[in-house]
């Protein structure tokens, strides 16, 4: 009997809650609780997933890992490292015990996201307890699978409002042999021009950051590709190697620029012009952070005009317009999974 497998306990707890008409708030390690406003965590009971942990299956030749939701990201990453593999979406942890379940539920991806895809792109299968307290298996452990609706990717960013994730199968990628960071001095406008030009070339770029007047670019892969990439990049601007940025700190929002109490997240299409207000740019300009409330109103209008969305990071609230018809449809989907509000009854999506 595997003591780390709490599947039956979690099902029993959910069956009991359902029969008592009680509600449950799902919690992993709590590392991302700052993303959920306090009043949205209300429920009759808290159900923790942290004891439900462990790697269920991992064979490096399959490029897939299957893990219980309470498994820590650290354990997963340490295991993958031993076999020179990685989670392609470079998830932020925001806490030393961050779990894979919380990572999927919050749909958080790190600096590599524009180049390798988001959490959702790598979820192959999900084991889930739905609002009828039934444990369901969707997707699988293989890369190609189109049987039934894609209920696996749907869990990414759903914040547990569609059910409790028991386990997930995740697609992996080989780790990079070499990683190099280069920088060049330039304005936000110039940085966007560079990043757009570079994005149209097949370069091994795996992260970008523009802050103040410096553009940092991370290249990862074989030495041959990095050398070839750098020669092309130097035709655009004088890039020089640097070690004055730690991408781990970017991923974890540990740079001083992210520590502002009011942080607004702008998600934008590629090739959108420079903001008329000060921001930090990641993801080749597709992700921008506004660190002050001063320009918030202007930023919302500007973001809508450019086809993006703006979210208050601390409350998870979307401040740009959401189509009411879409909202209605999303509510129907929520009903389809969680009609009796068994799971996370007060979290808004």
């Amino acid at each position: 009997m595997n003591t780390d497998d709490k599947t039956n306990d979690l099902i029993e707890r959910s069956e009991l809650a359902l029969s008592n008409k009680e509600t449950l708030y799902i919690q992993g390690s709590g590392s991302k609780s700052f993303l959920i406003p306090d009043n949205e965590t209300n429920a009759d009971h808290v159900l923790s997933t942290v004891e439900h942990k462990g790697i269920i299956e991992y064979d490096p030749s399959e490029l897939v890992i299957t893990v219980r939701s309470g498994t820590s990201l650290k354990e997963i990453e340490d295991t993958l490292k031993q076999h020179n593999q990685r989670l392609p979406f470079e998830p932020p942890h925001f806490g030393k015990n961050a779990t894979i379940g919380g990572t999927i539920a919050c749909g958080l991806s790190g600096p590599a996201r524009p180049y390798f895809g988001a959490v959702r792109d790598h979820i192959l299968g999900i084991h889930l307890i739905n609002g009828r307290a039934k444990a369901l298996q969707f997707g699988g452990k293989v890369m190609k699978n189109v049987a039934g609706y894609d209920c696996s990717r749907l869990q990414s960013g759903a914040k547990g409002t569609l059910g409790l994730i028991l386990a997930a199968s995740i697609k992996l990628l080989p780790d990079f042999p070499i990683e190099v960071t280069v920088k060049t001095d330039c304005s936000a406008k110039e940085a966007l021009v560079f990043m757009t030009k570079l994005a149209r070339l097949a370069l091994p770029i795996t992260a970008t950051l523009h802050s103040d007047t410096t553009l940092y670019i991370r290249l990862s892969g074989y030495q041959q590709s990095i050398d070839a990439g750098l020669s092309l990049m130097n035709l655009e601007a004088p890039f020089q190697e640097t070690d004055d940025i730690n991408w781990l700190e970017v991923r974890e929002h540990q740079l001083p620029i992210y520590t502002n109490s009011q942080l607004y997240r702008l998600s934008l299409p590629a090739n959108v012009e420079a903001c008329p207000f000060e921001v930090i740019m990641e993801w080749s300009g597709c992700l921008r952070w506004l660190c002050s409330e001063a320009h918030l109103k202007e930023a919302i209008t500007w973001c809508e005009k450019h086809g993006g969305n703006l979210v208050c990071y601390q409350t998870g609230k979307t401040l740009t317009h959401i189509d009411p018809v879409l909202k209605n449809l999303s509510n129907n989907v929520k009903q389809a999974f969680n009609s009796q509000k068994l799971w996370n009854p007060n979290i808004s999506i």
């Binding site: 749909g107 996201r113 524009p114 988001a118 959702r120 189109v146 609706y149 894609d150 209920c151 990717r153 749907l154 990414s156 960013g157 759903a158 569609l162 998600s267 934008l268 299409p269 590629a270 993801w283 597709c286 992700l287 086809g307 993006g308 969305n309 979210v311 979307t318 959401i322 189509d323 018809v325 879409l326 909202k327 449809l329 999303s330 989907v333 929520k334 999506i349």
Partner: peptide
């Protein structure tokens, strides 16, 4: 008969990933 946009040209969109749900449906 409602015309709905799922996903966006940005890399992520708030709300459920209905783009994924529709794909392969």
């Amino acid at each position: 008969g409602e015309l709905i946009t799922l996903g966006s040209e940005a890399l992520d969109t708030p709300g459920y990933d209905l783009l994924a749900l529709l794909t392969g449906s």
